[in-house]
Design a protein around this nucleic acid. Structure first.
Lengths: 340, 340
DNA sequence: CTGAAAGCGCTTACAG
DNA sequence: CTGAAAGCGCTTACAG
């Protein structure tokens, strides 16, 4: 039951391992008769090459590593979907790890992947990112690295993102154009760049429309959860009956807010409009259905992998590679939680 | 920038590679002074072992492979979550592959994982499963294998499942107890075992309650989608105005049905009750919220991996391993789409 | 306590 | 066209 090796084939055919290897790889300097014999026997004995040995010899594993905060999250599972599909096309396998928003875990996982000698790493950073030494290490070791969605501006490497600031700007502008004037923002945690950017987009939209920024209308999520959305909606409504819109950091939070409004007979969107971010499937089936910003997860996964391959290929050819940043377009999906 | 190897350390310390290796692995037959020197240098030079070489030498990769139909599906992403968490605890990495419900792809992926010499494989089968040769191959090669959720009865290996028949039986009984008499079933595709079992549970519940089975109340999903739920709801309502309940193969289908009923002012649950299966997060936030059967994905992933390890360990010790089947409990989550 | 040697299963530059 | 040899980076049984 031990796997068949090249040696087994060579022994049976009475030729050298070298020749068997070359025959199997279709080298031209092997006679047709030998090649045929090798292929026939390999087929018959059900030979499959031992990837581990090949990897060691070629210093290449055809494996890439992916680290995301959490997989049970529609956006990230879409990204993973895109990555796996694209990787498979090129004969690569994908190892997925979850940081659970912990930088400590993230560090350990980077080391695991590095030891595993993956050919490249794709990562979306944990929220409490303050230091980036572990990522700098990846770059120093010349392991291709691409950040996506949750990135760090201070790292010099390729990135795939959306323009969070602009997307948020557009979302809030949409609310303003529909007549809203007192717009709350349930923002994300303080650290992540995309949470900051969405907040800045919100502020800019207010500014450009001469709406005074009011700090008391800002709530900060820690877990970015349904419960927070619900709780913040309750709190803000009790303190500001005249609030007329909520821009939430993500659909889950928006759905929590809508749940509170529904339960308390506060009409969405007639009294309060709500706009989310991400476009989870869920948002299309709740009532009222949620207007939101579509965030192209699947595409982001594909693009991130393509960029990684580009870097890997440049490296193989010994060429210099200049990091690229790809900004994917977003669009507002208009549904029934906003007036227009 | 080439990674540091044992040889590099040995050269610097003027000792043999053997001793360096032993020191690093904490063998007792290395003097303390040597060990200290080795550790100090390894630390200083940032040595990390090359897993590929270790894997080749030890014939073990500390990697397991997982194949699921699709990752963008809350149930499966929960399973993956459970698998990854559990694997990480034991120092294992997880390669995830999606069959997209294609057996052809599944076969290729099995080969990939086998070539990769993963230490074990976890799989939830594609729907159009008719043959199982590729899985039999895994067993023949003595690679530990555990099936979960979507299994094949004819394979002799470990399995982790829920009792689909019983769960469906309970769901339908719940509808009957609430007074429903004309209960439709939007079933899954014809092939998968769990789809068959849920259908059988439905029939048994009718039988035990003296409700005559009516073939025209059965609709068969192909994609198990929202759209199918919607379409089937429309069709059945047009043909049977007196229908009073729908038991759907999965939440997504149930949510599609509810969407149709809502849009057409057919009161759920007062006119028609709806019960789903899986307990996606979505089900708790739609209106009316969906009564459903909770399917423990996270736990299933953990259990499947534990069973796999059990088999791997037995194998290492040369012990015989008798395949086990674990049946996880399910429960009905009562919400507002049913009368009680 | 230390190390030479063999070997895991491949690939490839080189010689013939 | 074929193959001996070296080597990828480790581990481990064995000798001293």
């Amino acid at each position: 039951m031990k796997p068949i090796t090249l040696k087994d084939l060579a022994l049976k055919l009475n030729i050298s391992v070298t020749t068997v290897s070359k025959a199997l790889k279709g080298y031209s300097d092997v006679s047709k008769s030998t090649r045929d014999a090798v292929f026939a026997l390999a087929e018959e004995m059900n030979y499959t090459p031992n990837s581990v040995a090949v990897n060691l010899r070629t210093r290449q594993t055809n494996t890439i590593g992916v680290i995301i905060p959490t997989i049970v999250h529609q956006f990230f599972s879409k990204v993973i979907d895109g990555i796996i599909e694209e990787a498979e096309k090129k004969g690569y396998l994908v190892i997925t790890l979850q940081s659970n928003e912990s930088v400590k875990l993230e560090k350990k996982q980077i080391d695991l992947l590095l030891n595993k000698r993956v050919d490249g790493i794709l990562i979306s950073l944990a929220n409490d990112q303050k230091e980036i030494k572990h990522l700098q290490k990846v770059i120093n070791k010349k392991t291709p690295l691409v950040l996506f969605d949750k990135i760090s501006k201070s790292l010099v490497c390729s990135k795939v993102v959306i323009n969070d600031r602009e997307a948020a700007y557009n979302a809030v502008t949409h609310l303003i154009q529909s007549g809203c004037k007192k717009i709350a923002h349930f923002r994300g945690p303080l650290n992540p760049q995309n949470s900051i950017d969405r907040y800045l987009g919100y502020r800019k939209a207010l500014e450009d429309n001469n709406i005074k920024f009011d700090k008391s209308l800002i709530y900060t999520c820690e877990d970015v959860s349904f419960e927070e959305g619900y709780k913040f909606a309750e709190d803000i409504y009790e303190k500001n009956k005249d609030i007329d819109a909520v821009f939430a950091i993500t659909d889950l939070v928006a759905v929590g807010a809508i749940a509170y409004f529904n339960e308390n007979n506060i009409a969405v969107p007639n009294q309060i409009s709500v706009i989310g971010f991400s476009n989870w499937f869920m948002s299309s089936v709740i009532s009222p259905s949620l207007t939101t910003v579509d965030q192209p997860g699947y595409k982001m996964g594909k693009k991130a992998l393509k960029l990684l391959f580009k870097e890997m290929n440049a490296q193989k050819k010994g060429k210099e590679f200049i990091p690229e940043t790809i900004v994917l377009p977003t669009k507002i999906i208009k549904r029934n939680s906003t007036l227009i």
